[in-house]
């Protein structure tokens, strides 16, 4: 049963991810991106991280996507004209690299992942409250340093963005 659900989710997320990059109308791209994010939330649920899945839907599929849609609609983007001087050389190179990566992935699938690869089993605690408690505990003990750094990183990004975007004072 689990395998079937996983396969379904994987197929849908792959399909929608490909649609994101191939659609010409940016609004469709974004809607497919929402679908991709929902599939990710499904993966989190399957791993027992229901809290993370909820966050994924709230933040990514919800807030960030709405922001994207707003921007696209405000800019009033239509279907783009054909890109100037369509560079077939670059396209071919891109295709070659993509196929190469695809073959690499197939090569992984073909062989066993190697000796001694650890098998992760989430502890009992992880399932309580969808893992929120375990997550919080980890964030403020083992991962407190990266957590704090992420705060500084966001602050730097905000200040940088405002500095570039705000009206010039003379």
């Amino acid at each position: 049963m689990q395998t079937i659900i996983f396969a379904l989710l994987a197929l849908v997320s792959l399909f929608s991810a490909i649609m994101v990059v191939t659609r010409k109308n940016p609004v469709f791209s974004i809607l497919y991106l929402v679908l991709t994010f929902f599939c990710f939330a499904g993966f989190y649920v399957m791993l027992g991280a229901t809290f993370l899945a909820a966050i994924q839907i709230l933040v990514y599929a919800g807030a960030i996507m709405v922001l994207f849609l707003f921007v696209v609609m405000m800019l009033n983007l239509r279907e783009p004209e054909e890109l100037e001087g369509k560079n077939t050389l670059w396209q071919t190179m891109g295709a070659v690299v993509a196929i190469g990566f695809g073959l690499l992935v197939l090569a992984f699938l073909g062989r066993s992942p190697g000796a001694g690869v650890p098998n992760f089993q989430p502890g009992e605690e992880a399932y309580v409250m969808g893992g929120a408690k375990a997550l919080g505990k980890l964030l403020f003990t083992e991962f407190v340093f990266p957590f704090e750094i992420a705060g500084v990183l966001l602050l730097a990004a905000v200040i940088g963005a405002v500095a570039l975007a705000k009206r010039k004072r003379v």
Partner: peptide, 15 residues
């Protein structure tokens, strides 16, 4: 940590 360091540096440099 290295990843977060690279990001903090890069975001500042972009600006």
């Amino acid at each position: 940590i290295i990843f977060l360091g690279i990001e903090t540096m890069s975001v500042s440099l972009y600006a």
